[in-house]
């Protein structure tokens, strides 16, 4: 695998959407390629940032209680 191939698969690698053969190929490349490894770590970090920025919102307790009553 070369860098363009790795780049092309990186999103799916980060999203855990590659099959096991592809995962091994990417891992092998990352271990030998600091540039792609850096890029991979950045993508992972970015995905985590998006998740944690958005998922701290939870339903207000009063709303949860209201729904519980409506639905029961």
């Amino acid at each position: 695998m070369n860098c363009p191939d790795c780049k092309e698969k990186l999103d799916r690698y980060v999203d855990r959407e590659l099959n096991s053969t592809e995962v091994l190929e990417v891992q092998l490349h990352l271990e030998g390629c600091p540039d792609c490894m850096d890029s991979y770590e950045f993508q992972t970090h970015l995905k985590r940032l998006i998740k944690h920025s958005c998922d701290c919102d939870t339903a207000p307790a009063a709303f949860r209680e209201k729904l519980r009553q409506i639905l029961s």
């Binding site: 919102d57 949860r64 729904l67």
Partner: peptide, 8 residues
């Protein structure tokens, strides 16, 4: 309702 936070 266990999925409320995701929906909200």
């Amino acid at each position: 309702l266990t999925h409320l936070d995701t929906l909200y």
